[in-house]
Design a protein around this nucleic acid. Structure first.
Lengths: 115, 115
DNA sequence: ACAGCTACCTTGCGTGGCCATATAGTGTGG
DNA sequence: CCACACTATATGGCCACGCAAGGTAGCTGT
């Protein structure tokens, strides 16, 4: 009952943050979806499955934030690598700024009383 | 075009955070909706209007996280004050913990490269 | 009477995360 | 040799939240 409320809420909490983390992860190196899902799933329970990652990457490509590149895999099917475009890099910058602002705002409100 | 993407994203970013801020604001003192909207709208652009606050308060009451109390206002219609229940206080604690975890996780991912 | 502020509430829409599911290539064990 | 497990990509439907817009009503000042 309460677990449901909390679970639902954390799902909502992830909205937007996942996109930010995907973009930020692509900032340094090109990556493919499956690997992204595995890496981010190790971070604070951000990702639950691959079904969450692929739609994000599709949207990013549609919006011109990333570009793709197919490459063979040593073990398994071919991988589709994603790489940031300049546009994606610019948006990431703005998103990081917005995140910092909102994060600090929330911490200010949530932190009053128990510093 | 990019402004739309960013605006849409920040909307998604707020999901869940608003509920957290409302609960956290009620932690110290009882408040009414209109005042809550005004206070939170001054914080990092968290709230855009009262239409966002009232549904949250309704859900909270339905879920037994807050209880209400009508009181006359010195100027204007009666105010409906909201106050945390023990259940709401307990959930707030868990949400604050989850928030801290996710926030740090995101900062770890987003901060790599530009420390 | 009227404008304007306070204060409450509801409806409909857009969006993103999640589950289940589908597809397919590659290697391992019974 | 076939079933299984792992790698890897992709999609459709569901649900909850935030938000703009709209509506109701009380009180004050002109």
């Amino acid at each position: 009952m309460d677990a449901d409320l909390l679970g639902n809420w954390t799902t909502q909490l992830r909205k937007g943050l996942l996109e930010l983390c995907v973009l930020a992860t692509l900032r340094g190196e090109r990556m493919y979806g499956y690997d992204l899902a595995k890496r981010l799933s190790g971070v604070a329970g951000l990702v639950t499955g691959e079904g969450t990652i692929y739609p994000i990457l599709s949207r990013f490509k549609k919006d011109g934030l990333v570009e793709t590149e197919l490459a063979e895999s040593p073990d398994g099917p071919a991988r589709k690598y994603y790489r940031l475009t300049p546009r994606g890099r610019a948006l990431l910058g703005k998103m990081l700024a917005a995140w910092a602002e909102v994060r600090d705002g929330v911490d200010r409100v949530a932190g009053e009383g128990q510093p």
